[in-house]
Write a protein that binds this DNA or RNA. Structure first.
Lengths: 226, 226, 226, 226
DNA sequence: AATGAATGAGCATTCATTCAT
DNA sequence: CATGAATGAATGCTCATTCAT
């Protein structure tokens, strides 16, 4: 397309470890910005690099593949969710309502979270190295274990069921989003009366379902639960 | 602009409406077969046509786009699930356990269902006309309404909550599958002890979560449910 | 795309010769209509047939290829131009001005003529049988000869130069159209001052050029003309 | 969505601006070669790239679309024609004969020029970005203005008519080629006596017509000219 | 470390034409 | 004669990734 571009003008080099992680962070930040416009992650590496003020090749110095960048963004956000959850569970007033409200607030303030989260498995399947996938899963596992234990301590559920409850809750989040978020091609007809069923208020439905799930799991004797 | 095309050696012609439906069905059947090898639908139209014993162009006589074929397969399967559900709810012994067992049995006998279902929103977003998407959604909506009403009649939940409960259940299915199905790139390391957390028995976990969800929704006074 | 269409409902059959030419004429008429919307002939055989109230296959009973339909339309229009020209040259007041005015009026009242005419060679090259091409050329040749002779009788040009003058005039028409008609991709920028050069008034420029050409050809002693 | 791509074995890299121009030129050169065999530009991007010793994608680093390559070739040749014309008009012996002879010689030595030139509008209409089209037109406009002024200075025509005369001359060139160049499908029958009319000696006819046009335009008092 | 030029696999879709009915 | 189902060739373009500089 272009004809004559000027020669390379490299950025300052990141030599120190802190510079390096700053570079990495810059890429993730840029991805975060682009994710707002294309929640499914439909932007090119070129766009990403340019937005981060770097060259395409540089991205590959910090990440193995395009999808690993997305996974890293997702992972960060997910850890934030875990943080919020852990904090809520540490509160003296911790109960199901608080947990559910915490999740709801997180999703409300991070609208780009669910589209990416729903894509997560697709990303893993597509173009991510074992190493990165493993690291991600281990990160998730560690938090799940910690928070799961806390849940088991706080609520009357059988030992070992906390993690399952958390997983089911997460499944509910991404699954409900997939059902309720109207795709582009239906945007124009969502107002029709026969589409009323699908004009779902995600926050409300999800909160309701989470309450049910958690209450169902904590009914006395529900030791077999989740 | 154009060039003279060479001759063709067509298959027998589907002239009658019933022959045409059979052609259409043949394409869906072929897609079903390919879906076993590529659960995410990663096969080319060419493969699909060849498998159906047709020319590529013929596929486009019966479907608008590649993705509409996949959507049609998914839609059919989903209607099967609705059938099973409706049948279970018609049984005199209908209760939560039966519903959950019905779902579990369906998923066990239709292992290709969830991968495709989890892809559904992506397909809608990608390359599906409003018309086809609308038809799909309407088909789902009609069944949801019918079955939801039945649920409300059978179980002590508030009027209008049946559909929400069904949706949440469906969300749980596709969400848990996404979490629990190990991606290709992790297949080799799933045996590691730190991956134990993710060696989820989908049927068991899902059944447990569904029971919790439905019991939580049907606790007396849970009118605000799901 | 569609699924079940109803069986064939053939039109009445054209058995008599006059019915047949009426069918043929209907196709040409339909092409004429479509040509207004897509002056370059960018419509499909399917559209054409539908517009003519016929099935696709029927078009091929009356014409060998898609392009032969277009050629036939063009040929008809061109014969109309020849008619107008011949009539003008028969007038007692026949002179260069009248000839030029006649051409200008024809083009003004047949705006779809030049786009198609400019495409003519492309059509011949692309997908037209020798037979149809030959018939077209012979039709043109006969008129050229007739009108050329008339020109030679009316104006002081050497014997045999009439045809050349006509050909050059025709070349001027299609060539100037190609230069002056702004392509789609420039529509938005034609108003810019640096595009002023290309905002050509075709009728004016063509008339002017034709006058020059014919006057140049008829200058006394210009026996070497055109 | 994406898949890991395989490695590449690139040619030497064009880093410096001059290397890049050379790359670009190499592509144009390759197009020129292919144009000899397919004067209408009927070759694939793949062929083009291979002939230039590059990968398909590389072509798109230097040009936006296939058609923009063709337009660039045409533009170059056209500038050559302008050069020849300008040189001729600078000669102390500049007169109509010299101009016409210059054009004739150019066309004789550049037989691939007219087929492509006659295609130019089609290309612009088909697949060319506004930017490239604009650049082309501006390039043409600048030369037309310059040469047109020179023509007005040399010949007794009204101010501002030079460009019109040039345009009409160009129209004559491409128009006459379209009429006179026998299409493939008529090659076998061109020898028939009734085709005599169409066995046109392009150079002779064009020269004759150009002389007429220019003489007609320069007749004293022809201020209304072209 | 940073750059960005080069690579090339990958694929849905159209539509003129045929010919069985 | 009329129909319209079936055919299948034909191809531009994107973009993740590599690696020479």
């Amino acid at each position: 397309m272009s004809t004559a571009r000027s020669a390379a003008r490299p950025r300052t080099r990141a030599v120190l470890p802190e510079d390096k992680s700053e570079r990495r962070a810059a890429i993730l930040r840029a991805a975060g910005v682009l994710l707002k416009q294309a929640p499914q992650g439909a932007f090119s590496v070129d766009q990403l690099a340019r937005r981060a003020g770097l060259a395409k090749g540089t991205v590959y110095l910090y990440f193995g593949t395009r999808e690993e960048v997305l996974l890293a963004v997702h992972s960060e956000r997910q850890q934030d969710l875990f943080d919020a959850l852990e904090k809520a569970l540490s509160s003296p007033r911790a109960d199901i309502r608080l947990v559910v409200r915490t999740v709801a607030r997180f999703l409300r303030t991070h609208p780009e979270f669910l589209p990416l989260a729903a894509n997560c498995r697709g990303m893993l399947e597509t173009n991510i190295g074992t190493e990165a996938a493993l690291a991600y899963k281990q990160g998730v596992g560690a938090r799940l274990a910690g928070i799961g234990t806390r849940v088991e301590a706080l609520f009357p559920i059988a030992k070992g069921q906390g993690i399952g409850l958390l997983m089911a809750s997460y499944a509910l989040m991404i699954g409900l989003w997939q059902i309720s978020d109207p795709p582009e091609c239906l945007a124009a007809v969502m107002e029709r009366p026969d589409m009323r069923l699908f004009r779902v208020d995600l926050e409300k439905q999800l909160s309701s379902a989470l309450v049910n799930l958690w209450e169902g799991a904590t009914i006395r004797g529900n030791g077999r639960a989740t």
